[in-house]
């Protein structure tokens, strides 16, 4: 195992939304800070820095990860996905994002990135979730603005839409 010197900066390299990125970090630097301040990927937010609020949730090598509880040095060579990678193009929103907008599933939007990442990850593996499953999944996220129901509604709508578009493709 590589040992990193506590007071030195080390280079960290990984793939962020399909692009190779590189920066320097002290061993103690959190991944959330690294993403935001070193790489300028400020879409991932930080609400508590102790793993409870879920705002900082991203996907690391296919696993949901709290970037505030992860050190930058830990993701060397990994594949990361963040909210910046969700939209199919800069001027178009993805199905889940559109469902959020339609359902007023966000107000301040500070919690939203983490919730989107959890849902994006979950829906990929569970195309027909129940409301109870979505509520259970999202119980690791805190939103202070919306009262949650619009978020649940958006998730269910997006799941249905994704499932039917998949069906169309496979029918075709």
């Amino acid at each position: 195992m590589t040992r990193l010197k506590a007071d030195a900066r080390h280079s960290v390299r990984f793939s962020l939304n399909g692009k190779l990125v590189e920066g320097e970090a002290e061993p103690r630097m959190l991944l959330s800070d690294f993403l935001r301040h070193q790489l300028g990927a400020t879409g991932t937010h930080v609400g508590c820095e102790h793993g409870v609020c879920g705002a900082c949730t991203i996907i690391v090598d296919g696993m949901l990860t709290r970037s505030c509880l992860t050190l930058a040095a830990q993701v060397e060579g990994c594949e990361l996905r963040t909210v910046e990678g969700l939209a199919p193009s800069a001027d178009r929103l993805g199905v889940l994002q559109q469902a959020f907008r339609r359902n007023h599933a966000l107000q301040c939007g500070f919690c939203t990135a983490g919730i989107l990442m959890s849902l994006d990850h979950y829906l990929a593996g569970n195309p027909t979730p129940t409301e109870a499953e979505i509520r259970d999944l999202l119980s690791g996220h805190i939103c202070r603005c919306t009262g949650y129901t619009p978020i649940i509604q958006a998730a269910l709508e997006a799941a249905a839409e994704l499932a039917s578009s998949k069906k169309e493709t496979s029918d075709a």
């Binding site: 400020t42 909210v83 910046e84 969700l86 939209a87 994002q97 907008r101 966000l106 500070f110 939203t112």
Partner: peptide, 21 residues
């Protein structure tokens, strides 16, 4: 009318501009 919000596209794609951003 409950039109969709102009604020949302940026907030949903990581383009919000909060103070620490």
């Amino acid at each position: 009318r409950s039109i969709e919000r102009v604020e949302d596209a940026a907030l949903l794609s990581g383009g919000g501009r909060f103070i620490d951003d």
